[in-house]
Write a protein that binds this DNA or RNA. Sequence first.
DNA 1: TTTACATATGAATACTTGTTCATATGTTCT
DNA 2: AGAACATATGAACAAGTATTCATATGTAAA
Lengths: 119, 119
Amino acid sequence: MDKKICDGNHEHCPAKITPDYDRLYDLSEFFKVFGDSTRISIISVLHEGGEMCVCDIADTLGISQSAISHQLRILRTAALVKPRRDGKTIYYSLDDEHVSEIYEVGLQHILHKRGEIEL
Amino acid sequence: MDKKICDGNHEHCPAKITPDYDRLYDLSEFFKVFGDSTRISIISVLHEGGEMCVCDIADTLGISQSAISHQLRILRTAALVKPRRDGKTIYYSLDDEHVSEIYEVGLQHILHKRGEIEL
DNA sequence: TTTACATATGAATACTTGTTCATATGTTCT
DNA sequence: AGAACATATGAACAAGTATTCATATGTAAA
């Protein structure tokens, strides 16, 4: 009952590929976290400025403390940032080296597309 | 009228950072494209299998031709894939080397988190 | 223990987005 | 020209999500 959409008589009919949907789902969820301007801004700020407290992030970005806190939770859950408490203040920093790497590659890509970088 | 949220008396009050919001918005839009399971599956399939036509992508993933076509448009608009017409058939492939790079780094990240890879 | 500060969170709302269904476009073959 | 095939697209609906507002938690100082 394999419902073929096309007749399969194409010149280029590639070898069967069996996608690992679990992996791909996790992967899309991972990238989804980068795909919001507030969250990528938080990542950017932590990437540039290193460890920073919530209110300084909010102040730097001009976004409400509540909104930042909500997004930090998502970033925390995804293990992209990690908190460190010092008294009343909680400092956040990037958790994983992959985060910086992906941020940088993505940035290079859009700078390249804008012609602001030669590569 | 610089409404400070915190009093700024923290031990670690970092140097002023001025985010480039235009860049960050573009960057988030870029990552947003990766952040959908259908689109990342398309990217995955093209990454593994190289150039492939629409109906083979749909067939491989078990997703309707219409849904694939809609998502291909988004990928095309973001310049992540490029089409090549051959008669009735349109073959798609990954457009930019950055796409593969980001896909691979992201995959490594989640495999690492799952403990399926040592790094 | 009150008061003030830093952060987190629940509920509600407004907005975005992915899929389906039906149909349109464009190509090839007869 | 007409039929069949491959892909694209518009409209509608459902589902997800980011922000705001109000408030709660937790910590430190008075």
